[in-house]
Design a protein around this nucleic acid. Sequence first.
DNA 1: TGCAAGTTTACGCAAGACAT
DNA 2: ATGTCTTGCGTAAACTTGCA
Length: 508
Amino acid sequence: MVRVQQSVIREALQLPRAGQTLKEGEDFDLVEYEISAMNKAQLQDLLESYGLTKSGNKGDLQERLRAFAKEPQEFWKAHLLQPRAARSRGQRTGSSANSGSALRIASTFGAGSSEITYRSRRGVDRPQRQLKDDEIMSYDDFARHALALHRSSADHASVQPGDSTVDGLDSMASSAGTSISHSSDDNVPMRRVERQLSRAVQKLDALEYRLSEPAAFGWMSQPSQPFTSSSSSAMNRQAQAAQPIPESQAATVSATTSAIHVPPTAMHAPSAVMAGTNAIWSRTLAVPREAIPPENLVVLVLREGDEVWFDKTTVPDPPGRIFSNDISRLFQEWNSSYLSNALVLNGRGIPVRLWPEVYKSRKGIKTGAWDTIKTVWGNWKVRIGVVNEIRIETHHVKQFIVEERQRFTTDDEFWAVYRRPDGTRLYYQQILDQLQQNRMERDHIDAEAARAYFGGDLDHPAAEGAFRYVKSGHSRLYTKDGKVAEKWREWLEQRWAHAENWQFTQGG
DNA sequence: TGCAAGTTTACGCAAGACAT
DNA sequence: ATGTCTTGCGTAAACTTGCA
């Protein structure tokens, strides 16, 4: 199967021609691929056509192809031959070939254009792809497993133990007195019913959770459950009362924010209430500074002027994704300890702004945590340390959500800008997209200004190496707009004289 | 050179627009 | 009413940069 040429440099493999159909007893047609002459992208394409993984360096890719080429025809057949789909996306057969869009495509790209691909909205080169059979099986297995768990926890009497053909949704439907026959996976109406049922169940679950944990949603004036759980989430919610809030600030909070986002303590725990049940909790949960072993003690300074301390061995995992669907809450929790309840340490809410202080691995508090939240946090963040407001106002680009919000006095003013023509608010991702686009446009303008200032030569002596960086021991020049613009802003900032001169020559 | 942190790309589900 | 196809979206993974 493998034929390595003796010329040492040239190496060719005999591999099955992709996309061919075989009848019973036939073998694959083979095609020779000179893998020594192929670049990484070509090797990856080839691997992909055989359903093999594309990760690794060029040597890895070649080795993977060599191993595949050594396999017998039987292995190839088992690996490559999938049952033919009755119909797959993009195929224009039967009546669909006469559809308006199919005719449009044919007139534009020719009659042979049977497959439709299109570029992504963001300009990346990724066509839509169908799920592979093994992926579908894997997801189905997962869904069955999850539904089985749900069924056992719901403990429906109508479900017969060991009846593996009854899934959870069917059992729920039958227990509700509705008769639904079992159907194949291709039964679309059934799938729709299942989907609707599934949504209804989700909503019920959410409602059930809220009813069972009212304190977590600020619905009760006093917590109803004693502290019995050692889980971090229960600890977080109940520990709200541990470090008391000054009464005046608590009053301000409850007057200006909605109940759903305010921790129960902030709403209901001025001193009078604290004297009751909450006070007991305070004594049992608020760990005094002296009680924490010095090697585990971490102290953070809050903007409110006080400090929060905690034992670093008790820090929970980072909060899950919580703000994408609630940007207003992100604004609330960014700075204020009193309004933060997503992360609570030793009884105090930790403002989102300070999360890096808790989770970056260099802080030595929790390993591996920052990796899981740095991307989303990076989208929220304020860039700290931007200086010299007068100068920077014309050059600095507001690029992240909280930073952008801080340009406005109120949430309403922010949403007045980030809305569609019909008045509805933009989604989280749409705001990010818009900010990114603004940044790219701004960077382009600034980079062009820098190039113009130095006569097209960023290595100009007057730049004093501001656009140079070292990589792999070699000094290089930045070329990307983003970096050039960033260095240009720094350069301007450091050299007032140049900046004044530049503005003067621009007539500004 | 390896690791941590910052930034960009693109995966795949779900919704709903479109076609029959 | 039913089925197919396109697009929006959140975020995991990949990639880049900088530092010790």
